[in-house]
């Protein structure tokens, strides 16, 4: 049992998030009979895939004690590049996938390299690279451009029964990430560095290379997100990433991962993404403008952080 809890990184606060999910669903069912339908739930899932993917990347970076604000620029550039080379047939598509995944990992590695080897705060580094990347994206094109093969759009919009393929794909990635963090040395290193970098270093953990890989992985996951976004919109948009930098942090924090690093896991992030997506959906049904959703989101962050503060401050 201990192992199960540790493996899933389950925390008491996840019960609160689960209860919130239940509450939101109840309110949704009460406010509209169109809410609890397979179609609507599939919609909610479609809405949350991109955020879930970016938040997964952010979770790993934050667990390692860092932060990645480069998604805003990175997603823009990656979608533009992908859509402009994906073409119409499987071979160009495959090449585009490989190229964009490599580019994403490369961007992440540059972030990680500057953070680790120059020693600049990741906030400043990723802020800077994000600005550069969005500039590059806009230099390539100011308007949404390019295209993706039809079969790929079909895939992204496809559903297994009433479950979008995107959801299944996301769940698989979360499982893989959880597995990575639990079953590999890399995973334990991430936690060790995030908790206490110096102690980890004394213990022989290769701190620098681990950090480098973390940021590269973050860029890689951003590339996956970019490909998914292209699939949904059919074009590459230099502004596709706007807002994702800060948006990606909310579910991580609400899911119980500490911004200071070392504590938390991907399960919490997934639950938080679900509750945020459902909340937005229900508020829409209740005709509450998205303006109030922002207020709610901000208050949720404050509430979540205030709960966790007591834990780590000794």
């Amino acid at each position: 049992m201990d192992d199960v809890i540790r493996m899933t990184r389950a925390q008491p606060v996840h019960l609160v998030v689960l209860a919130l999910i239940g509450l939101v669903v109840l309110v949704g069912m009460y406010s509209s009979d169109r809410f609890a339908t397979p179609l609507n739930f599939a919609n909610v899932q479609d809405q949350m895939v991109a955020l879930a993917l970016v938040a997964l990347a952010q979770t790993i970076v934050i667990l390692s004690g860092g932060i990645d604000l480069s998604y805003a620029g990175a997603l823009g550039l990656l979608t533009v590049v992908f859509a402009s080379i994906a073409g119409e047939d499987p071979s160009t598509f495959a090449a585009a996938v490989v190229a964009v995944l490599a580019l994403g990992a490369f961007i992440g590695a540059i972030n990680g390299g500057i953070v680790t080897f120059v020693g600049i705060h990741p906030l400043i580094v990723t802020l800077g690279t994000s600005t550069i990347l969005s500039g590059l994206a806009l230099l390539i094109t100011r308007q949404p451009t390019g295209s993706v093969p039809l079969f790929f759009e079909d895939l992204v919009y496809g559903r297994f029964g009433m479950v979008p393929y995107g959801t299944i794909f996301t769940l698989v990635l979360y499982l893989l990430a959880g597995f990575l963090l639990w079953k590999t040395r890399f995973g334990l290193r991430v936690y060790a560095i995030g908790d206490n970098e110096q102690a980890a270093s004394i213990s022989g953990v290769p701190v620098k290379s681990t950090k480098l890989i973390v940021y590269a992985l973050s860029g890689f996951l951003a590339a996956i997100t970019a490909i998914y976004i292209c699939g949904r919109f059919g074009v590459g948009d230099p502004r596709a990433g706007v807002g994702f930098d800060l948006k990606s942090i909310t579910p991580v924090i609400v899911g119980g991962t500490l911004l200071a690093g070392g504590r938390g896991g991907v399960l919490g992030t997934l639950l938080a993404v679900i509750v945020l997506a459902l909340l937005a959906n229900v508020l829409n049904f209740m005709n509450v403008s998205s303006f109030y959703q922002w207020i709610a989101e901000g208050l949720i962050i404050i509430a979540a952080v205030s709960i966790f503060v007591g834990r780590k401050s000794k």
């Binding site: 540790r6 334990l188 060790a192 908790d195 206490n196 110096q198 022989g204 504590r263």
Partner: peptide
């Protein structure tokens, strides 16, 4: 100074990076 990692278990600490 301690080099233990609070976020990890006893076993994970003892065999950190030599699992």
């Amino acid at each position: 100074e301690f080099s233990t990692i609070g976020a990890l278990s006893v076993a994970e600490n003892i065999f950190l990076d030599a699992e």
